[in-house]
């Protein structure tokens, strides 16, 4: 059997799938919220233990 039709249909399927991705896509609100939380945790240094802005002070200050 010729391999041509197989390759052609495969190409068509992939093209259709990728077209769906780029054309019709809504803002993924839930994923964006998770991404926002990750960034906020980094910026505000919110650890797992919910201890924001409390930074360990370097003890043993030589004066």
């Amino acid at each position: 059997m010729s391999a041509f039709p197989r390759v052609a249909v495969l190409g068509a399927v992939m093209a259709t799938a990728s077209a769906c991705v780029t054309i019709n896509i809504y803002f993924p609100a839930a994923a964006a919220e998770k991404a926002a939380d990750r960034i906020i945790e980094d910026v505000w240094q919110l650890g797992e233990g919910e201890t924001p802005t409390i930074r360990p002070q370097p003890d043993g200050e030589a004066k």
Binding site: A17, C20, V21, I25, P28, A31, A32
Partner: peptide, 10 residues
Amino acid sequence: AGLVLAQGNI
């Protein structure tokens, strides 16, 4: 599967 991945990620 690729579609779902593309939609669920930021």
